[in-house]
Design a protein around this nucleic acid. Sequence first.
DNA 1: GACCTGCTGCGGGTTG
Length: 737
Amino acid sequence: MSSPASASEAVNFGLLHPKVRRWVWQQGWSELRDVQDAAIPAILSGDTDVLIGAATAAGKTEAAFLPICSKLADHSGPGIQALYVGPLKALINDQFRRTEELCEALEIRTHRWHGDVAGTRKQALLRDPSGILLITPESLEAMFVLRGTQIARLFAALQYVVVDELHSFLGTERGAQLLSQLHRLEIAIKRRVPRIGLSATLGDMSLAADQLRPDHGDRVTILESAASGQELRLQLRSYVDERPDTDEDASMAVRGIADHLFANLRGRTNLVFANARSRVELYAAELADRSLANGVPNEFHAHHGNLAKELREDVEAMLRDPTKPTTAVCTTTLEMGIDIGAIAQVAQIGPPPSVASLRQRLGRSGRRDEPAILRAYCATVAIDAETPLLDRLQLPLVQTIASIDLLLGRWCEPPEPSRLHLSTLIQQLLSLIAQHGGAKPAEAFRVLCGRGSPFSNVTTTQFAELLRTLGAKDVLTQAGDGTLLLSGRGEPAVNHYTFYAAFQTPEEYRIVHSGRQLGTMPIDFPLYEGLLLVFAGQRWRVVAVHEEDRVVQLTPSPGGKPPGLGESSGQVHEEVRARMRTLLEGDLSPAYLDQQSRALLEQARREYATLELDKCPVVADGSDTLLFPWTGDRRLHTLAAIFNASQMDTAVDDAALRLVGTSREAALTAVTTVAERPAPDPHALARKVEGKATEKFDSWLSDELLCDQYVSAHIDCVGAVESATRLKQAMTATDPP
DNA sequence: GACCTGCTGCGGGTTG
């Protein structure tokens, strides 16, 4: 079965070091995968960045490390030769075990460095740097801050940088931090080092390449696996609650889903993704109850970020143990490539946050020759005369189908285009000052915002304002010769260990209604007047945000849907919404729908036609009017901001815009106005948004810079006007003036 | 409008 001869048939296999080839033979591999073979000449050449896109089990790590180790086996000397950056400590531990085996045979030393690694091991590496270093961005930041003067020496011999799970960094503060660190590293050693990015879910490889090597994406070699992945078995089942406003903990739909999971998952190792921590707890408890009632050992366990580390590790160990059938009910915690063994089935309850995350989740199942199995579930309410208009359209079900269809079509969301990450620029500026004990403004701008850095879209004007604001807030001060130094607030910030992470751990806000505190919740998204949210099982509208006291005031919202259902989440991409519209206007039912889902989809289509939404996407809902632009969340929120700015009370409501207390005629006029006027000034809109300071160092930005940052991340005026124009065209086709 | 990620140096105690 595993013949050494066929491994050598691969075109480029012979280019690997003899000892690496021997190691491959010893693994009993019958052949190299396509990306593994293609990566060999690209990486060995040492003069190009490489982006490797391939499914989870396709051996991306080996694709990077077989050629890297070949190179190091011949050219290893003192100093760190290869730097691997991973997003999770657990992932680093896994990769450390895997690479160590290969590297032992080649006499290449491997080191891991993160918060759980003993100080003595770190000291040993600093004394005698060599081989391959596996590290987190946060630990790398600590190196810059605490050992700034040693950076050039430690990395003088660096030949490769590997970024694992690249998708988890792109478009985020942490990604801007990592790319800034890599840029600073190259400046310290005065040469470019090839970067190798690994991921299964990049959506658009050339957009990802532009971010892996900012300003020079065209220099990246893109390798995408042609392997179509394994066979997929798939079913979407829907469960209906007859009585929507039940006070019971678990509704009929929840019990129906739990029954089905219990009947179909026991005896094997599975993952159930339930989207929210509260749902994870609910389903884990329901499943444990069923084990008890049936007198069988419980195989179902919760896994999410608020659980103690020990509990989570217990569950992970059970998943890895092939003798112990285990199902973990989890949030995104088990989405990424930590080794948890062979997963038989993946279940998804409710719409996935994105198509990319659904693909990532599915990638956990059906390794080797087994088919991947995806069980999708949708809980919804029965429709009667009282059901609110939006619920009649079964949007969560339609979104789930749209996401699965896009997945089957091999599409997933492209990485967010690069935006301003000014909070992280502040972190990098303070880190740079700590690294060198001070920095001249022009030099700091060149290093942090020059070509090839993730901040190259920051202008000199913006940078100057940033410095002024940091001076005014006593974060920085300037010496007589102009050198920037840390001062009153900057010094303690940098000297505390919490400085090294670029991301914010969300603060808790107090949630208040008519002077009574309803509870607290972490706020990690912009809050503004008119925003709709669900809290403590009820639907609310934000009436005020007091940032200083961390208080949010709410008032009950009219026309809401039953709490806890229709959980929408994340930033829904316009491609998903476009597919939802196509589904509602079409008449084909995907083969993977069960009978109930099929009936619900047909019912939603009848409602859609009855409301004549296919003819005019503007419809009255009581005293409100709903608009259906069928576009992504960014445009929806921009449109809402534009309407709010012209004194129309507007909120994003699932896939629709709700114009509160606005007649259909007034809404039609408002849409026409937006469509016909030039696009509004994005800054003017941003100024009206409360609570823009959501990232870690945002409180040190001026209002003007906060607006710049908010516009780059959340506002799309041109797109909003385009959506309004399409709405207007659809309206005038049916409502002649 | 959900979820997740990460972290130094040192002092004090215990174990081999």
